[in-house]
Nucleic acid binder design. Structure first.
Length: 490
RNA sequence: GGUUCCUUGGCCGAGCGGCUAGGCACUGGUCUGCAAAACCAGGUACGGCGGUUCGAGUCCGCCAGGAACCUCCA
């Protein structure tokens, strides 16, 4: 592992050199989706961001245990039926068993993550399957005196915690400010301070997702699941905790507080937060109802979409911005991403056609160093991609016969491009280039195009153009080369 | 109101105080029977006003505009 990885740690608000707790392994926890709706573009940002991290850590030789949870219980809703669990509400609306809703949207999430070529995490635990662990955590925190019972619910005592700790060290807030800004919510009267948060919540009678406990029939608090599941699968201290910036406060702040009481220290050493995807300058999200689902992106069926975009275009679009910057959706940006990516993938598919020469016109080692430097610098994928376009230029220049690479340099370039584009950035050729699966079609088109070559040789331009134009009308892309032709289905 | 952050060329989007980011679009050229593709060259830029510095898009201050979080959210 000669390449040092630097990641921006929200805890210190600085880029830090990554050092794993154990020499060759990494524990990574990422907050996953709440499965009560279809996955939208916003969900793809953390999935892809931490997918890159996962892939890169693996690439440089770490054994990574990547845990990404499914939230299927525990979140409260402030509007309408106050205090009702989101999952339960949706289920009643559709007259379904809540776990049926959970299963449906979990499957949908997996389906779209697969299409985006997001690798599956090592473990994908569900909150509802870890209520026992969460209750143990409640007992523990209560026993240590950092929580109190109130009317069947258990609340975390932030003031008590603040005597020896700092509630706000992650988000940079302080409790005085919080007092003046907290809104009236359900359970406010049961709490000593408005900023205290629930560890266990007594369920209202109509609440159908509930578990028995010595406190009440209820459900675990909003922030407990990640503390419980990360500790179970990664230990009480692990390397990296990731999630969206919108979870920084209160979710991650609460996680830190809970785990600090339970275990005496912060659960994770590095906290990473991806920024939001915006649409017309505003966060794309469930609350604002301004989201476009991944299904809609892939089939183009949304009023804001000028066309369908294939999953790799969406992936490339996201990777062209740094993960800590907001990224604004627009058709123009997506289309630009699509064209650039197609050109890059096209170049990669031509790598095998390159023949070694006697001289090397380019410094492959230097390009390789730059690529690794970029990805190691807090996953700077836009810089990495910029360098890959440099590699693309080389490939095309060599193809045009205007430059060359010695055999070992050529092999190095092939390896570099394939590693970066496919292994680390996780792009893939979603469409069959040249040919397709139908052999009969292949031969037919080749026959037509070889007739065209004959026509060209005879300077019969009318026939040559007719063949090309007709094929283009049918959706083929015809490219003339020095000694023949290439084609693909658009 | 508080906390954190952003404002870069036609569009998207990187930028470590001094060295061409990159992509898309555009213009000219090379190649080609023509085109396409490819390559070469080119033009536009750092919200405003001050300050620090030999030197600032990059640091500091103020102003303007915007965002996220403070409530479930990726």
């Amino acid at each position: 592992m000669e390449n040092k990885l630097f990641i921006y740690n929200t805890l210190s608000r600085k880029k830090e050199e990554f050092k794993s707790i154990n020499p060759n392994s990494v524990g990574l926890y990422v907050c996953g989706p709440t499965v009560y709706g279809d996955p939208h573009l916003g969900h793809s940002r953390p999935a892809i961001t931490y997918d890159i991290l996962f892939r890169y850590l693996n690439h440089v030789g770490y054994k990574v245990r990547y845990v990404r949870n499914i939230t299927d219980v525990g979140h409260l809703e402030s509007d309408g039926d106050v205090g009702e669990d989101k999952i339960a509400k949706k289920a009643r609306l559709e007259e379904l068993e809540p776990m049926e809703v959970v299963q449906y949207y979990t499957d949908r999430y997996h389906q779209y993550m697969d299409q985006l070529n997001v690798k599956k995490p090592s473990i994908e635990p569900r909150a509802s399957g870890h209520v026992i662990e969460q209750l143990q955590l409640v007992d523990d925190i209560l026993a240590k005196g950092y929580a109190y019972e109130s009317n069947g619910s258990v609340y975390f005592d932030v003031d008590k915690y603040n005597e020896t700790n700092n509630y706000g060290r992650l988000s940079g807030r302080n409790t005085e400010d919080m007092l003046s800004t907290t809104r009236e919510l359900d359970g406010q009267t049961e709490k000593r301070k408005s900023y205290d948060f629930a560890l266990w919540k007594k369920a209202a009678p109509e609440h159908i997702m509930r578990w028995p406990s010595k406190y009440s029939d209820g459900f675990p608090g909003w922030h407990l699941e990640c503390s419980a599941m990360s500790a179970r699968y990664l230990g009480t201290e692990f390397d990296i905790h990731g999630g969206g910036m919108d979870l920084l406060f209160p979710h991650h702040e609460c996680e830190i507080a809970q785990s600090t009481v339970a275990n005496g220290h912060t659960p994770a050493r590095y906290w990473m937060h991806n920024n939001m995807i915006t649409i017309n300058g505003q966060k794309m999200g469930k609350s604002l109802g301004n989201f476009i689902t991944l299904e809609q992106f892939f089939n183009g069926n949304h009023e804001l979409l000028e066309q369908a975009y294939n999953p790799m275009t969406v992936r490339f679009f996201i990777l062209q911005a740094h993960y800590r910057s907001t990224l604004d959706f627009s058709n123009e940006a997506l289309q630009a991403a699509q064209k650039g990516m197609e050109r890059l993938l096209e170049g990669c598919s031509k790598l095998d056609k390159l023949e070694p020469g006697s001289e090397s016109s380019f410094d492959v080692k230097d390009l390789s160093d730059k690529c690794y430097a970029a990805i190691s610098d807090d996953l700077n994928t836009p810089i990495l991609i910029a360098h890959l376009f440099e590699g693309l230029k080389w490939i095309n220049t060599i193809l045009a016969g205007k430059a060359s690479l010695k055999e070992e340099d050529l092999e190095a370039l092939k390896a570099l491009m394939n590693t970066m584009v496919f292994d680390i950035l996780g792009l893939e050729n979603s469409e069959q280039t040249s040919g397709g699966s139908d052999q009969l079609l292949d031969e037919t088109v080749n026959l037509l195009l070889s007739l065209r070559v004959d026509a060209k040789t005879n300077k019969d331009w009318a026939t040559a153009d007719k063949i090309r134009n007709e094929l283009q009308n049918l959706g083929f892309v015809i490219t003339d080369t020095k000694d023949g032709f290439e084609w693909e289905i658009k």
